[in-house]
Lab assay of single mutants.
Amino acid sequence: NLYFQGLKYMVPGARVTRGLDWKWRDQDGSPQGEGTVTGELHNGWIDVTWDAGGSNSYRMGAEGKFDLKLAP
Rank of each mutant, 00 (worst) to 15 (best):
V37N: 00
S57A: 11
L41S: 07
Q5I: 10
G35H: 01
D28M: 04
D51G: 00
K69I: 12
D67C: 03
F4H: 13
E63R: 06
T36H: 04
G39S: 14
A52K: 10
G39N: 09
R18W: 06
G54D: 08
K69S: 13
Q27T: 06
G35Y: 01
P72R: 12
P72Q: 13
P72S: 13
W24D: 07
Y58A: 03
A14L: 07
D21M: 03
Q27N: 07
G44P: 01
G54E: 10
P72W: 12
K8N: 10
D21L: 02
L7H: 08
D26R: 06
A62H: 10
W24H: 06
G61C: 04
L7C: 15
G44R: 01
Q27M: 06
P12K: 13
G35L: 02
G61R: 03
L20S: 10
G53E: 01
R59N: 02
W45D: 00
T49G: 05
Y3V: 14
R59E: 02
F4Q: 14
A52H: 14
P72Y: 13
N43K: 10
G13W: 04
N43G: 10
D21K: 03
L20C: 15
D26Y: 06
L7F: 08
K8H: 12
K23H: 08
R25I: 10
G44Q: 02
K8V: 12
P12M: 12
N1F: 08
T49V: 12
F66W: 12
V11T: 11
G19C: 10
D67A: 01
Q27W: 06
Q27P: 06
L68A: 02
D51K: 04
A52P: 01
L68K: 00
P72D: 12
N56C: 14
I46V: 10
K8W: 10
S30R: 12
Y3W: 14
A71F: 06
S55A: 09
N1D: 15
S57K: 14
F66Y: 10
F4R: 10
R15I: 03
G39H: 07
G39K: 10
S55H: 11
L70V: 08
L2K: 15
P72H: 14
T49Q: 12
M10N: 01
G54R: 07
G35I: 02
A62K: 04
K23V: 12
W50T: 01
L70G: 04
V11Y: 09
Q27K: 05
A62E: 03
Y3R: 11
Q5N: 11
D47R: 14
N56R: 08
T38K: 08
L41A: 08
V48M: 00
V16L: 00
Y9N: 08
V37I: 13
L2Y: 11
D21E: 04
I46K: 00
R59W: 03
T49H: 10
E40D: 11
G44E: 01
G54F: 10
W22D: 05
P12W: 09
P31S: 08
H42N: 13
W45I: 03
A14N: 05
S30N: 14
Q27H: 07
G44D: 01
G19D: 05
G33Y: 05
W22Y: 07
N43F: 10
H42D: 10
R25Y: 12
L20G: 11
L41C: 11
Q32K: 11
G19F: 06
D51Y: 02
E34P: 14
S30H: 12
H42Y: 13
G64F: 07
A62Y: 13
Y58M: 04
L41E: 06
G29C: 07
G6N: 14
V16Q: 00
Y3S: 15
V16M: 01
Q27G: 08
K65R: 09
T36M: 08
G39T: 12
E40A: 13
V11D: 04
Q27Y: 06
G53I: 01
W22L: 06
I46A: 03
W24K: 04
W50K: 00
